[in-house]
Amino acid sequence: VSFKITLTSDPRLPYKVLSVPESTPFTAVLKFAAEEFKVPAATSAIITNDGIGINPAQTAGNVFLKHGSELRII
């Protein structure tokens, strides 16, 4: 599955597209996205474009099915 993750704390709204296997734990996606944007993973969260928080204790495939591919990291 592929996710387009936007960094909301930067006024330029940079984004990265990450492709991972469906079975990947979403905690790993969060950690990798945080490292890519050089923000601390421990204090970061991934939310939907509607501002709904995503529980990272599920697979990337589940997140994709529930929330789609466009996400934000805060």
Results as ranks from 00 to 15, higher is better:
V1Y: 13
S2M: 05
S2I: 06
F3H: 00
F3P: 00
K4P: 00
T6V: 08
T6Q: 06
T6M: 05
L7G: 12
L7P: 07
L7M: 12
T8H: 14
T8Y: 10
T8A: 04
T8N: 12
S9Y: 07
S9E: 11
D10P: 03
P11E: 15
P11W: 14
L13E: 13
Y15D: 07
K16G: 03
K16Q: 11
K16T: 14
K16M: 09
K16D: 03
V17K: 09
V17A: 14
V17F: 05
V17H: 06
L18S: 12
S19L: 09
S19E: 14
S19K: 02
S19M: 09
V20W: 13
V20R: 01
V20P: 00
V20E: 00
P21S: 13
P21I: 11
P21Q: 10
P21H: 13
P25I: 11
P25H: 13
F26P: 02
F26G: 07
A28P: 01
A28N: 15
A28W: 08
V29G: 00
V29I: 12
V29Y: 01
L30Q: 15
K31N: 14
K31S: 10
K31P: 08
F32A: 15
F32L: 15
F32S: 12
A33C: 13
A34M: 09
E36D: 07
F37A: 02
F37S: 02
K38D: 11
K38A: 07
V39T: 12
V39W: 04
V39H: 06
V39E: 07
P40Y: 02
P40D: 14
A41F: 06
A41R: 08
A41S: 07
A42I: 04
T43F: 05
T43M: 13
T43W: 03
S44I: 15
S44D: 00
A45W: 02
A45C: 05
I46Y: 01
I46A: 11
N49A: 06
N49V: 04
D50W: 03
D50I: 03
G51C: 03
G53N: 12
I54S: 02
I54C: 02
I54E: 02
N55I: 07
N55E: 08
N55P: 12
P56C: 14
A57F: 07
A57Y: 09
Q58D: 13
T59P: 04
T59S: 11
T59V: 09
A60L: 02
A60I: 00
G61I: 11
G61Q: 12
G61K: 12
N62F: 05
N62C: 09
V63W: 01
V63E: 01
F64C: 03
F64H: 05
F64A: 02
F64G: 03
L65E: 13
L65C: 11
L65W: 04
K66H: 10
K66D: 12
H67P: 02
H67T: 05
H67K: 05
G68F: 00
G68A: 08
S69E: 11
S69M: 08
S69Q: 12
S69A: 11
E70P: 04
E70M: 06
E70I: 03
E70V: 05
L71Y: 03
L71V: 00
L71A: 02
L71N: 01
R72C: 13
R72D: 06
I73Y: 13
I73C: 03
I74N: 14
I74G: 14
I74F: 06
